[in-house]
Design a protein around this nucleic acid. Structure first.
Lengths: 97, 97
DNA sequence: AAAATATTTAGTTATATTACAAAATAACAG
DNA sequence: CTGTTATTTTGTAATATAACTAAATATTTT
């Protein structure tokens, strides 16, 4: 007999929700090699406003996927756990065109 | 230099988006042992309407995560790839309370 | 201290998601 | 064929998300 607990998957689902946007998934992939990148790099590459990028980064941070490091005027982001790449690739391949 | 291609992550992100809802993540977990379950079992356990459950299942199916098998009046769902469980657990643990 | 740069926060609007009710299908039972 | 059961589809309303602009904050440069 299946049993559903309303709260059981709520926090976990946040992680997947955070990855469920093209821009955010792309950001995580850029960081997957363990390197860090600055907000302005993302803004330039994606072509959206700073404010929008900042929100996306906040969502990823809140999901526990990335952490930030402020140095001078710039903020650098990196993955909390760079081992995430193979996992993301494995899931990403599930979708058939 | 980072380079963003608008379409590159769109399909992949669909998979994560599909998992980014408590009910849907729970469904996938119930199927993770490779067993199949019928729609009515999910409806009973979660306590939402048939129509709503059907929509959730359609999203998971469209993401390529589950497939259905109609037998008589009932429809049974199972994972396309039961190996998904460790992957989901690995990602789900990322989130700090 | 004032100006400039990098980023975040707040407020707003368009769009997407979620859940429901009601109607439509499909398979089976009488 | 008629009614019943299981599920999907369609239409709708409430809520959430995503992008933008403008304002706020923090750090460096002048």
């Amino acid at each position: 007999m299946l049993k559903f607990d309303k709260n059981c998957c709520r926090h976990e689902a946040e992680v997947f929700k955070a990855l469920g946007h093209p821009t955010r998934l792309w950001i995580v992939k850029q960081l997957a090699d363990g390197q860090e990148h600055c907000v302005c790099e993302f803004v330039e590459a994606v072509g959206i406003r700073f404010a929008t990028m900042s929100q996306h980064l906040a969502i990823l941070k809140n999901a526990g996927l990335i952490i930030d490091d402020k140095r001078g005027k710039q903020v650098f982001y990196r993955l909390t756990c760079p081992c995430i790449l193979p996992v993301i690739q494995c899931l990403g391949e599930k979708r058939q065109e």
